[in-house]
Design a protein around this nucleic acid. Structure first.
Length: 263
DNA sequence: ATGGTTGACTATCAA
């Protein structure tokens, strides 16, 4: 079973790329971020035509997440628990039947948090990470396969960015950000890509500006975080870097985990 | 060489 995360940066602008990638890679479950559309604007018919179920949690203009799956989800819930006032669509959770059990997959679009001096944005990011920590703690207690898949907007380690000096004051790399990410790992979540490779550099995002892609000035911020029950079944991972060379690409590329679950 | 794009939406904002 192949489970992927991809920040699509506007699903309507990217539908041709998305259909091409689904056809090529044939993932079983895909967590999308930044769909940048309301649910009713999501191009679901084209995706359903490839045999996927589509569950969205959209928002006008910004944010928005979705789960695409070859198998029908048994349960779906929208929104990260912990703050009923939060209007931003950044989280959707699905439960799927596999091997006679359940696997839980969440699509996460963690707040960017820049600029860190802003009175609202960085505190919102840290508060969101606290809520994610509480959520993860709750779900880990179920002792089930769990995949928290998404754009974390966190550079975990110095070697996960091109130049530490360029990122040291950024909300994606500040010590508090990395500490919060480490707290998540310390609950018992495994970074799937790092569990399967030591390769550096290994990036998942390259800014559109200043020729970052041709110069390979990227960062690794898209992650598959696994419970022990999921990590035990992990076979391999892949960062589908070639997709960044396609016409009209997203600034992120898909990150894929292959598991020995049967659908 | 001091670097500047993209998507959603229509004047900027977010990334």
């Amino acid at each position: 079973m192949k489970i992927a995360t991809w920040n699509i940066n506007g699903v309507r602008a990217r539908i041709d790329n998305l259909l091409a990638w689904l056809t090529e890679s044939v993932p079983d479950i895909v967590a999308l971020q930044e769909i940048k559309t309301l649910d009713e604007g999501f191009p679901r018919l084209e995706i359903e035509a490839l045999g996927y179920h589509v569950e969205t949690h959209g928002q006008k203009g910004f944010n928005g997440v979705a789960l695409l799956s070859k198998i029908r989800p048994d349960e779906i819930s929208r929104g990260l628990p912990g703050n009923g006032e939060d209007e931003q669509a950044r989280f959707i959770e699905g439960v799927f039947s596999v091997d006679g059990g359940a696997i839980r997959v969440c699509s996460i679009y963690l707040p960017n948090g820049n600029p860190p001096g802003d009175p609202v944005k960085y505190p919102y990011k840290l508060a969101w990470m606290d809520r994610l920590l509480a959520f993860a703690e709750d779900r880990l207690a179920l002792e089930e396969p769990l995949v928290l898949a998404g754009d974390y907007n966190v550079i975990p380690e110095p070697h996960d960015c091109f130049d530490v000096r360029a990122w040291e004051g950024d909300a994606l790399f500040l010590p508090e950000t990395r500490q919060a990410f480490r707290r998540l790992e310390n609950l018992g979540l495994t970074d799937a890509v790092r569990a399967t490779t030591d390769a550096v550099p290994l990036y998942t995002f390259w800014d559109y500006q200043a020729g970052c892609w041709p110069k390979n000035k990227g960062i690794r911020i898209d992650h598959l975080m696994l419970s022990a029950e999921a990590s035990d079944r992990l076979i391999s991972t892949a960062v589908e870097k070639h997709v960044r060379n396609w016409e009209k690409p997203s600034d992120h590329v898909p990150v894929v985990g292959v598991f020995d679950f049967a659908a």
